[in-house]
Simulated scan of single mutants.
Amino acid sequence: MLALTHQFVAQLPNIDCLFGPLTPDGGLPVQLGRPASERRLTLMLDTARLRDLAYCAAQAQRARDSLGIH
């Protein structure tokens, strides 16, 4: 799981990522935010899809868009 989360985090430089415990349905919550900002975002990642680079890229883009980082 650690290698899979690194793949996701690597696409989000300068963004703090805090992962929560797995949910019963296999979801992985991650709280995202910039260090100097109070704005936070929580995403629920699908652990079965974390191996898919396109999925990680899409979720990372979703996070950047939601946090106003372009």
Rank of each mutant, 00 (worst) to 15 (best):
R40H: 08
A36R: 07
L53H: 06
V30C: 12
A54C: 07
P24L: 03
R40K: 13
G26D: 07
E38F: 14
M44S: 08
P35S: 10
D25P: 08
V30H: 05
L22W: 07
A54V: 13
L50I: 12
A36C: 03
L45Q: 08
R49H: 03
R34C: 14
S37H: 11
R39T: 13
C56F: 02
R51C: 12
R51Q: 12
F19S: 02
L28R: 14
P24H: 00
A48P: 02
P29N: 03
D16A: 15
R49N: 00
D52N: 11
G26E: 04
Y55G: 08
T47G: 08
E38V: 15
L28F: 02
A36F: 07
S37W: 09
L22T: 11
C17S: 15
P21E: 15
C17G: 12
S37P: 11
P29R: 00
P21I: 09
S37T: 12
F19V: 05
A58W: 00
R34F: 02
F19T: 07
L22R: 10
G20E: 06
Y55L: 09
Q31D: 12
P24I: 02
G26K: 08
R49W: 00
P29M: 03
L18I: 14
Y55D: 04
Q31W: 12
R40Y: 05
D16P: 07
A48D: 08
S37D: 13
G20D: 07
P24T: 00
C17I: 10
P21Q: 15
D52T: 01
F19C: 12
C56K: 02
T42S: 09
T47A: 09
A36Y: 05
T23P: 06
A54P: 04
T42W: 03
T47I: 02
C17V: 15
A54R: 08
E38Y: 13
T42I: 12
L43N: 01
D52M: 02
L41E: 07
R40P: 06
L43F: 00
T47F: 03
G26I: 01
A48Q: 08
Q31M: 15
C17Q: 11
D46V: 05
A57F: 02
P29W: 00
R49D: 01
D16K: 15
R39H: 13
L18A: 15
T42F: 00
L53S: 08
G33N: 13
V30K: 05
R51Y: 05
P21N: 14
F19E: 06
E38G: 14
L28G: 11
L53Q: 08
G26N: 05
D16N: 15
G20W: 03
L28H: 03
L45K: 07
A58P: 01
G33I: 08
G20K: 06
L45T: 01
P24D: 04
